[in-house]
Design a protein around this nucleic acid. Structure first.
Length: 807
RNA sequence: GCCGGUAUGGUGAAAUUGGUAGACACGUUGGACUCAAAAUCCAAUGCCCUUAAAAGCGUGUCGGUUCGAGUCCGACUACCGGUACCA
């Protein structure tokens, strides 16, 4: 041991074990293994040119630790990785640098894989998927066609955010504040014919399925809110002297007596139907145009100041009071929610109240309890109906029921459910995405590409710059657009829009089970074996859209008999953000980005892993702290330096036995509950205990290495082999604790007076109450505190404390 | 606005069913080793008074429940995240 060095050569060790693990494919999942399966899934990355981010490390570490632990527990683990590689950044980079996105993507993926390996992640790298690979997106297109076949795809006009300078259609996120994300020019609203997926058909199923998903309440609530179910009623309001009826959705049918006017969205079709009767049509038209010009952003910004125009010449009839009430158009009513028309109840809705105030409209109180001269009264808990002959005196809840049955009887309305979630706009006008497998034929109309002609591949062209019209760059490529109609064979034109980035990620977890299958998206046998994803970790930001979209596709595929589980995921967790050391979100512009590769180069992957897990509670966001990294390295060095003090003795040291069993229990529980920070703290404490001993036994040392292995796999593997083991630590069994070894002989007894700690002492375990009282009262220190005071009572918590209460 | 979350030393953070607040680290200070430095080891480290001990104070603010509150209840403040005229 004379040449033993007090610190380890992380570069040498890490390279060595990574080579052994990856070249022997030790982390590969085995289809149909006899062992019990475990499927852990992390969100696959977008392979940007910047490479791996510190956030990826945190996001993937939790399940890397769990997967490594599961293997040690004898499970057949599927822990795959892949790349969600379609997307705008690559396309932009490609245009700027005149390099094809295919080349950039391949290059970035290669770098990313190397970085993942240098962090020691135990992914099965033979199952990698790449959403931009035609062998993969063939099945993305296949699912699209299946959705089409089942009536879940439709085309409809909508307004999109268009940047005239970049010539691209932008998402809401990319056009915040009405400015283009990239060039900062004003975004305009452009009408487009757009593909939609009818996800709203699955709203109820998606909501119900949440019952089966194990997740914290925050994750669940965000999904529930996104789906946004609300129950109420449809009510039909006749237009006086016309055939036209305005149908509204309301969650408060009980307040119908207070409905003193109506409001319809500027886009509402009734305007067109009634245009001959409208006296101020010009004014209405002007308002419509003005509303259309506003971007979504402006409509929200101006929310406080409600605008609108009364539609003169028509009146609606409140079907319960039979009174004539005015009808307005206003952009505070959205065409996309409910029926695009509302019955306004100013007394009990803040928005209607504001509107009524501004335009001097009648406000009728129908729920007792508030002061409607000041504000709308929206309490539904305690309110009692008034001024409502048919339902006076009833609670809100009862009144709703009764009014709905009246609506049914009179045939003027019915109970209804509405969802906030909208259908999924399923296209982008870009090159770097999955082509939508649709053909337009002059004679046959919209024709889906036959399944056997899939995939419709992206043409490998030199130029893929945007068109002036907001169409996809594909529209300029004749060799792509020109085709023959699959139905009649006549010359036809291909759809040039591509799918959104959410497409490929909506089913990737299925492909991992059978990634090389060219006959189906994944075989039934393999999906049967691997079943559901047991644990899915990812970002909080994907809890709504990605999770809901992928659950939707899975449920659909289940309904048509392609997959075997209704819900794809059993359990979902989310890591917290790592912020810059300035406590701000990491970003290029703030210059506070931490590059994980720099940490790996300076300290090694084990140090990075240990520190990132130690930094804070896994589910909370936390600032990065450079100097803390050294502490993690110091901890690993301490274990390394302990090596010469390890004896050949088998069995735990007597003095360490109890703390070892305690640590096994604590660390195990902590890892399962994502409490990596306290798990590492417990291991640090154990190492501190070891260091108080002159020697530790081989068993003491080995159990430490085994517990630490999922967290710091390289150094533990090296030390394991230095102990003379021929087999790898990754194949060892995870340690178990012995309950009987946890019992303490002695405990620290706390003695307090009036709840304040005054004394403590070590006493025998399991003393009875009387003995403890006696001991406590006998203490000199305690005597001083109770002397001359009136004794009230004494409280004993066995094996913990004695509290003496005096006056 | 609404819905969540969070608030604890100089810093990151721990704390089981209400029962020793600050585990584990970082940093700082002092010491050992060294010609010196780094590394390492040892000690101290919530605040206040103090030579020291003891006492006192202390988990965002105010109040409550309790023998006992970081933890439970009520009111409030700040920050972070989600959402946004959803009828």
């Amino acid at each position: 041991m004379s040449e033993f060095i007090p610190s380890f050569d992380e570069k040498k060790i890490e390279k060595k074990w990574q080579d052994i693990w990856y070249s022997n494919r030790y982390f590969n999942a085995n289809d149909y293994s006899e062992k019990e399966k475990y499927y852990s899934l992390v969100e696959f990355p977008y392979p940007s040119g910047a490479g791996m981010h510190i956030g990826h490390i945190r996001a993937y570490l939790s399940l890397d630790v769990i997967s490594r632990k599961r293997r040690m527990e004898g499970k057949n683990v599927l822990f795959p990785i892949g790349f969600d590689a379609f997307g705008l950044p690559t396309e932009n980079y490609a245009i700027q640098n005149q390099i094809h996105p295919r080349i950039i993507t391949d290059r970035n993926i290669k770098t990313f894989i190397n970085q993942l390996k240098s962090a020691g992640f135990s992914f099965d790298f033979t199952r990698m998927v790449d959403t931009t690979d035609p062998k993969y997106y063939k099945w993305t297109q296949w699912i699209f066609l299946k959705l089409y076949e089942h009536g879940l795809v439709y085309k409809s006009k909508t307004y999109v955010n268009f940047c005239p300078s970049c010539k691209v259609v932008l998402s809401n996120e990319e056009s915040q504040g009405g400015k283009c994300d990239r060039c900062d020019n004003d975004v305009v609203q452009m009408e487009k014919d757009v593909w939609f997926l009818k996800i709203t058909d699955y709203a109820e199923k998606l909501l119900k399925g949440l019952d089966e998903l194990e997740s914290n309440s925050r994750i669940r609530m965000e999904q529930e809110k996104w789906i946004g179910r609300s129950s109420g009623a449809y009510i039909n309001f006749k237009i006086a002297n016309e055939e036209e009826t305005l149908r509204v959705f309301t969650t408060r049918p009980d307040t119908i007596y207070g409905a003193t006017f109506m409001v319809i969205a500027p886009e509402h079709h009734a305007i067109e139907h009634l245009k001959d009767k409208i006296e101020n049509l010009d004014e209405i038209k002007a308002y419509q145009e003005q509303a259309l010009m506003k971007t979504e952003f402006e409509r929200i910004e101006l929310a406080k100041d409600k605008t609108g125009v009364e539609i003169k010449g028509i009146k609606a009839i409140n079907p319960i009071t039979n009174k004539e009430i005015p009808v307005f158009i206003s952009d505070y009513v959205m065409i996309t929610y409910g029926t695009g028309a509302i019955m306004a109840v100013p007394a009990h809705d803040t928005r209607d109240y504001e509107f009524a105030q501004k335009y001097g409209l009648e406000i009728v109180e129908v729920i007792k309890g508030g002061d409607i001269s000041k504000e709308a009264y929206t309490d539904t808990e305690q309110g009692i109906l008034v001024n409502s002959p048919l339902i006076d005196g009833l609670s809100v809840e009862k009144a709703k029921e009764k009014i709905i049955s009246i609506l049914n009887e009179k045939n003027i309305g019915e109970e209804a459910i509405q969802y906030r979630m909208k259908d999924w706009a399923f296209n982008r006008q870009r090159y770097w995405g999955e082509p939508i497998p649709i053909v337009y034929c002059d004679d046959c109309g919209i024709v889906p590409v036959p399944y056997e002609d899939l995939p419709v591949t992206l043409p490998m062209v030199e130029k893929f710059i945007p068109t002036d019209t907001g169409e996809s760059p594909l529209a300029n490529i004749d060799s792509f657009t020109k085709c023959s109609c699959p139905k009649c064979g006549k010359e036809a034109r291909r759809e040039t829009d591509t799918m959104p980035q959410w497409a490929g990620s909506s089913w990737y977890f299925l492909r991992y089970m059978d990634p090389h299958n060219d006959k189906e998206l994944a075989s039934k046998e393999k999906m049967n074996y691997w079943g559901q994803v047991d644990w899915y970790n990812g970002g909080m930001e994907h809890v709504t859209r990605h999770l809901i979209y992928s659950r939707f596709w899975n449920q659909f595929l289940y309904d048509i008999g392609v997959v075997v589980h209704k819900e794809p995921y059993k359990k979902r967790t989310a890591q917290g953000l790592i912020l810059g050391s300035d406590n701000e979100k990491m970003s290029k512009s703030r210059g506070n980005i931490v590059n994980p590769m720099e940490i790996i180069n300076e300290y090694g992957a084990d140090t990075l892993r240990t520190f990132v897990l130690f930094i804070s509670d896994y589910e909370m966001s936390t600032p990065w702290n450079d100097s803390g990294v050294k502490g993690a390295r110091r901890f690993l060095d301490k274990i390394w330096r302990m090596f010469p003090n390890v004896t050949d003795e088998v069995g735990y040291s007597k003095d360490l036995e109890r703390v070892i069993h305690e640590t096994i229990m604590g660390v195990g529980d902590d890892l399962e509950n994502l409490k990596f920070n306290t798990a590492i703290a417990k291991l640090m404490s154990l190492v501190n205990e070891y260091n108080k001993q002159e020697k530790v036994t081989r068993s003491d040392y080995e159990v430490l290495l085994t517990m630490l292995n999922p967290i710091a796999p390289h150094i533990t593997e090296e030390l394991w082999s230095m102990l003379g083991h021929e087999t790898l630590l990754v194949f060892e069994t995870y340690p178990e604790y012995d309950e009987s070894k946890l019992v303490k002989d002695e405990i620290d007894l706390i003695i307090s007076v009036n709840g304040k700690l005054r004394d403590k002492m070590v006493v025998e375990n399991n003393l009875d109450e009387e003995k403890l009282k006696k001991i406590a009262l006998g203490r000199e220190k305690i005597q001083a505190f109770i002397e001359g005071k009136e004794f009230v009572k004494i409280i004993v918590v066995p094996n913990k404390l004695v509290n003496i209460v005096v006056k």
